[in-house]
Amino acid sequence: MNTSTFFTRIIIIIAGLSCLVWSGCRKLSSIGPNKGADTVKSNTVHVIPNYNSSDTELTSKGWSKVFEDNFDGDLSQWHALTGGVQKELACYQPANLKVSGGYLEISAKKETVTGPAIVGEPATKSFDYTSGWMVSKTSISANETTPVVRIVARLKAAPGYGLTSFLYTFGGNWPTNGEIDFLEIKGSDTNELLSDYQYGTVPLQDLVKNALSTTVTDGDLSAAFHVYEFEWSQNSIKTYIDGELVETKTVGGYIPQLFGKTEYLSLSLPVGGLYYNNFMPEKVQTGTMVVDYVKIFTAKKSL
């Protein structure tokens, strides 16, 4: 399958609602051959196992909460995708997204299934793994009305070679409406948080260079819950871990072009793909990404 076909826009109809998504748009966003090696790597930052946060820490400062899922009910606020993605090993399916005990569990499993070879396309194939991928029905935008958007997520990354815990936002007609990869944690390097973003003026052409960065932590991000906060504004993307600012991303040349774009929030657990250089399929391990909550706040200015 050629790149143009792979990036064809698809319309997913779930529960009578339409969501415009790109099949695997974010799959070229990490450390694959188009991006090269990490461009920025932090000094080691301290993290606090099982840290938690309070909404009042933000609302008392003027933030307004516009989205919340504590995963104590169903997944009615999300679209669950079905099918594969180019160069990955798993078939995404709703069954791998499970709400249990107030947590969302996104599990990669070793099992043989037949499903769409590419999400949204009719051709099928056999897969040796399954996993989960979901996209919010609620859109997100840092714009003139809400200049600052803050995403807060408390989660445990999935351990295991070949897995990548992923939280990001993206828009249709990729990458003309942008993509922000807030959180990428490889299961083989669970003390490192990677982040990146993409933008282009025409479909399929990402213009952003040298924006991939790695935050090294002094703890295993799969061993305990940590709170990740991401602040998207007109000129920067900030990352907080357990209440501490660890990165302010201004590089890449195109963050201002993301302002005003409409994106959707996504959580997924890819198996293989372009996240791993010199990938060795025989070493793949299965695992689970556990999410306690996801919340979105907006503000009229950076607070």
Results as ranks from 00 to 15, higher is better:
residue 106 I to C: 02
residue 252 G to F: 06
residue 152 V to A: 13
residue 57 E to W: 02
residue 33 P to G: 08
residue 17 L to R: 04
residue 235 N to L: 12
residue 5 T to W: 03
residue 13 I to H: 07
residue 238 K to C: 05
residue 23 S to C: 15
residue 287 G to H: 05
residue 53 S to Q: 06
residue 117 A to M: 11
residue 17 L to T: 14
residue 213 S to G: 14
residue 12 I to K: 05
residue 48 I to V: 14
residue 239 T to K: 14
residue 125 K to N: 01
residue 155 L to G: 02
residue 146 T to Q: 09
residue 93 Q to L: 09
residue 139 S to L: 03
residue 229 E to W: 06
residue 45 V to L: 01
residue 187 G to C: 15
residue 88 E to T: 09
residue 11 I to C: 13
residue 114 T to G: 04
residue 12 I to N: 08
residue 297 F to Y: 13
residue 202 V to H: 05
residue 260 G to H: 15
residue 139 S to E: 15
residue 19 C to D: 13
residue 160 G to Y: 03
residue 54 S to I: 08
residue 227 V to N: 05
residue 202 V to G: 13
residue 154 R to S: 09
residue 287 G to I: 07
residue 148 V to K: 00
residue 145 T to L: 14
residue 156 K to M: 08
residue 71 F to T: 04
residue 34 N to S: 14
residue 35 K to Y: 13
residue 46 H to M: 01
residue 64 S to H: 01
residue 182 F to K: 13
residue 259 F to K: 14
residue 189 D to M: 09
residue 282 E to C: 14
residue 242 D to A: 04
residue 214 T to E: 01
residue 224 A to C: 11
residue 10 I to F: 13
residue 113 V to T: 04
residue 50 N to A: 04
residue 125 K to I: 08
residue 209 K to N: 02
residue 180 I to Y: 13
residue 31 I to G: 10
residue 211 A to R: 06
residue 270 P to Q: 00
residue 166 F to A: 10
